[in-house]
Simulated scan of single mutants.
Amino acid sequence: MALNSLKDVYLDQMQDLYSACQQSLDATTELGNAATHQELSEALAAGGKGIAEGMEKISKLCSDHGINPDGEFCKGMQGLVKEARSHALEEEFGDDDVRDAMIITQYQRMVHYALAGYGCLVAFANRLELDGDAAVLQECLDETYQGDRHMTEIATKGGVNAAAA
């Protein structure tokens, strides 16, 4: 599709974010399975559920606009997923707490990519006066921020970073 208008960019980026979510979902599950800290493992399971719910919402929006959500492949998330697997799953760790700290790091990098994607889509939807879309996407953005903040709390107040130190 030629990108000739903000609406074209909006739809393209919605497909890109769907691909990013799809890729990060598998990695999040793998990170959750590798985590040893109970709260971290539970948060990653909840994060996976949230990603899947976001994908459902994006898929519905894509359908409403007559496009296939699978229309793009997100190379940015591909790189982040590769990094997450390399640094948190394939790397050798002498201590489970250190791995858990790395898991949080890699997960948050993927989440921050999604935050940027959702934020841009909300701005585009608002500019295009797609109020229904904007509301759905804002909800996804808010939930993603909430998950990111929870992960920071697990690292700092939940003791993962302290245990890793």
Rank of each mutant, 00 (worst) to 15 (best):
S24V: 09
D96W: 07
V81L: 03
E92W: 07
E30G: 02
E56S: 14
T29Q: 11
D95C: 12
G76I: 07
C74W: 01
H65V: 07
Q138L: 10
T29C: 03
L141W: 02
E42C: 01
E143F: 04
M55S: 12
D64W: 11
D95R: 12
M102D: 09
G76C: 03
S59M: 05
G48F: 05
E139C: 07
A46L: 08
L141V: 00
S19R: 03
L137Y: 06
G76Q: 08
G54N: 15
A125R: 08
D131H: 11
A43M: 00
T105D: 13
D16F: 01
E83Y: 02
S41N: 13
L141Q: 08
E42I: 09
A52H: 09
M77Y: 04
A84S: 13
G47S: 14
A46S: 05
T105R: 12
V136Q: 06
D70S: 13
L89D: 08
Q108F: 00
A114M: 13
A35G: 06
D100E: 04
E129M: 02
A88N: 03
V136F: 03
H112M: 04
I51L: 15
F93M: 04
L61G: 09
G117L: 04
L17G: 02
Q106G: 09
E139K: 12
K60N: 14
L89K: 03
N68M: 09
K60Q: 15
A134S: 09
A114F: 09
L137D: 03
F93W: 04
G119L: 06
N126L: 11
L141R: 08
I104C: 03
L115M: 07
T28S: 12
C74G: 02
V111W: 06
T36D: 11
R85W: 02
L89W: 04
G119V: 03
I51N: 09
T36Q: 15
Q15M: 01
G66S: 04
L31S: 04
G71C: 08
D95V: 10
Y118L: 07
E53T: 14
D70W: 07
A135Y: 00
S63Q: 14
G76A: 12
A101D: 10
L137K: 01
A45F: 05
E92Q: 11
L61C: 04
D70E: 14
S59E: 13
L115Y: 08
S63R: 12
A27W: 01
A35W: 08
Y113N: 05
A134P: 00
D26E: 15
S41M: 12
D100A: 10
K75D: 11
S59W: 01
S24I: 08
G47Q: 11
C120P: 00
D100W: 07
L130H: 05
D95S: 15
G76V: 11
C120F: 10
Y113P: 02
Q15L: 00
D131E: 15
Q106R: 12
I67C: 05
I51S: 06
D64E: 15
S41H: 13
P69A: 03
C140N: 10
V122E: 07
G48R: 03
I103P: 12
D100F: 02
T28V: 11
G117A: 03
V136S: 05
E129A: 05
A45C: 05
I104Y: 02
V81F: 05
N126I: 08
I67G: 02
L89I: 14
D26A: 12
A114K: 15
Y113M: 05
